[in-house]
């Protein structure tokens, strides 16, 4: 597996995003980072409100209202996407180099247009002759079949409200795949699916990564899905990326106390359905230093002194935690 280490296709470095609210500035991303390697699937996990959606939406320049990136870079190959004008991102990047599956299947489709109108628009081919329209249509229908949508041939004539929640989610997956992008950003794309349908979709995505060299960032709450699907994973807490590494290593020997606690409450490892005591802090008043420190059983004074630096005790497996400061590998 590990040949000569290739360069990431997409890399986020030290990204900070702040939003203005009525009660002051909220720093919802705090020096977050992530590297996506070619042909790999990278999971992003963390509790609700940790900034997972903010992180992947920032790649496409979609920031919250009154939000701005205050620091960092987002490299797509040699190109820094951060700071590119919105229309350049919209024209050259979104739907071409990068396909996006948004989190909310209910809000992402326009209720007044037929599904066909919305999906065919995402397939960008030069010319609009009858022949190309028919080819486009056939292409989209084949994708709808691939995502297990029943009656795919007739789906394009229907309106969004005529589909179930999970069916809408699958329409969005097909829409993101339609322009055959090299990178997919998927924000919890299977939360509305039963496990048998989810399994089929995960197999489809895995297959595309292998066959077409598709690279993907896959946001999820479910460490089981990360285990099944992903090669590498980043764990986020309260706007900070606290750990990243190969999935097998992170599952077997997690470094960060937060990752350890997240894994310990997975139904397979916990006797009862349980969570980590306490809650993710409001980004308006985040704790100083490592933002996990108020909930961390191993916290010590150094934890609130400043954000711990990123160190890699194992090659490719990095953590930001004072407990691991001395273990940094070269």
């Amino acid at each position: 597996m590990m040949l000569e280490k290739p360069a990431p296709v997409l890399e986020i470095r030290d990204l900070s995003v702040s939003v203005g609210t009525d009660e002051g500035e909220a720093r919802i991303l705090d020096n977050a980072g992530l590297a996506l390697m070619p042909g790999s699937i990278h999971g992003v996990v963390g509790e609700s409100g940790c900034g997972k959606s903010t992180l992947i939406r920032a790649i496409l320049g979609i920031l919250p209202k009154r939000g701005r990136a205050t620091h960092g870079s987002i490299m797509l190959g040699e190109r820094n996407l951060l700071g590119l004008p919105a229309d350049t991102l919209q024209k050259d990047v979104r739907g071409r180099a990068i396909g996006f599956i948004p989190q909310d299947p209910f809000q992402a489709l326009n209720p007044v247009f037929r599904v066909g109108t919305q999906l065919l628009e995402t397939v960008r081919t030069p010319g609009d002759s009858k022949a190309t329209r028919e080819t486009k249509k056939a292409h989209v229908i084949s994708l709808l079949k691939a995502v297990q949508l029943p009656d795919a041939e007739h789906a394009l004539d229907r309106y969004p409200h005529q589909f179930s929640g999970g069916q809408r989610q699958r329409l969005l997956i097909a829409a993101a795949l339609a322009s055959a992008p090299g990178i997919i950003l998927a924000d919890e794309p299977t939360t509305a699916l039963d496990v048998t349908t989810q399994l089929q979709i995960l197999k489809l995505l895995r297959g595309l990564a292998i066959e077409r060299g598709l690279s993907m960032i896959f946001v999820t709450h479910d460490f089981g899905v990360v285990a099944q699907l992903c090669d590498t994973v980043t764990v986020m807490y309260a706007g900070q990326t606290v750990e990243s590494g190969p999935v097998a290593q992170v599952l077997k020997a997690p470094f960060h106390p937060y990752t350890q606690m997240l894994l310990a409450c997975h139904p397979e490892r916990a006797k009862e359905l349980a969570g980590i005591p306490g809650a993710v802090p409001s980004p308006l008043r985040p704790p100083q230093g490592c933002r996990f420190n108020p909930r961390c059983p191993s916290a010590r004074p150094a934890c609130s002194a400043g954000q711990p630096p990123r160190v890699a005790p194992q090659p490719g497996h990095a953590v930001r935690c004072v407990l691991h400061l001395d273990e940094a590998a070269a």
């Binding site: 079949k145 297990q148 949508l149 029943p150 009656d151 007739h154 039963d194 496990v195 048998t196 349908t197 989810q198 399994l199 089929q200 995960l202 197999k203 895995r206 479910d222 460490f223 089981g224 899905v225 285990a227 099944q228 699907l229 999935v247 097998a248 599952l251 894994l263 997975h266 397979e268 490892r269």
Partner: peptide, 29 residues
């Protein structure tokens, strides 16, 4: 089939879990 498809905390278990074969069922036909 449903109970067998639940994801497990085991890296790469995707390949070992068989998917339901065939086309998705159609409520119109």
């Amino acid at each position: 089939a449903l109970l067998a498809a639940a994801p497990r905390l085991e890296p790469g278990s995707l390949n070992d879990t068989p998917a339901l074969p065939g086309d998705p069922p159609s409520p119109t036909n």
